[in-house]
Amino acid sequence: MNKVQSNKAWFLVLPMLLLVAFSAIIPLMTVVNYSVQDVFDPNTRFFTGTEWFVAMLNDPALQGALLRQFAFSFTILAIQIPLGIGIALLMPKQGWRASLVLILVTLPLLIPWNVVGSIWQIFTRGDIGLMGWGLRELGYGYNITRNPLDAWATIILMDVWHWTPLIALLCYSGLRSIPEAYYQAARIDRASRWAVFRYIQLPKLTNVLVIGVLLRFMHSFMIYAEPFVLTGGGPGSSTTFLSQSLAIMAIAQFDVGPSAAFSLIYFLIILLVCWVFYTAIMNLQKDKS
């Protein structure tokens, strides 16, 4: 057979390359550009090399925000994943009840971030908010503007309320894809409820759970609008997460160089965590088979 050598196929990839260049590479490169310079005004700039990166990594305020960010992301994952699986298992399988529950469960997902923040801000107010007022009436001095623990608990509760439905929805679709015959076979084998979950349902859920964990990790690591509206990062800086620190630096203080360096570090952390998690899970599955 005659093999025709031709590189024309590259032209077919070109439109996609252009699109990616404008949507991702070029904006990212401008950030890289800022991160290695000290910019005074449009005409005055100095090359600083890695100076900003070193400064950012040693900034105690940012280190604190990073720690809080990890604490937040892991806490909500630890709650949302099991809770989401549990809800999916309890959801009705068919009929009008299934549709109704599906709508009710997904409702929080449809609400925009800052609206969620506003809802909870009002909900937790001591004077007119149901939760804030209720807790005070019960004798607990609930105050998210003064007590860091209250602020944390409320933010976590808010995120769980907003995003657990996503996990539940993913798991629900995963569970629906298991043929009825598996459950029948398990009943005939006299398998317990736990055995059915452990050996039939959980293995089938692994793939959707990997996607769920990745999505939720990235999402929560970038959280901005909700805590910004709810607590404004307070009391003090106890609920100031990474993106809010970045926004203050870049927009309020207009420190373009440091915030560009910080953005890149931020981006690399997310990339790294997702990559480590994904490879770990995939290797785990490979070892098994």
Binding site: Y182, S192, Y199, P203, K204
Partner: peptide, 26 residues
């Protein structure tokens, strides 16, 4: 009773040995 289906129904995370052994273990 036991039943064999049109689809091939086995526990995906268990080896063939463990699959066959599963009703005995239970």
């Amino acid at each position: 009773v036991s039943m064999v289906y049109q689809q091939f129904i086995n526990y995906p995370t268990l080896t063939v040995f463990d699959n066959i052994a599963s009703p005995l273990r239970l």
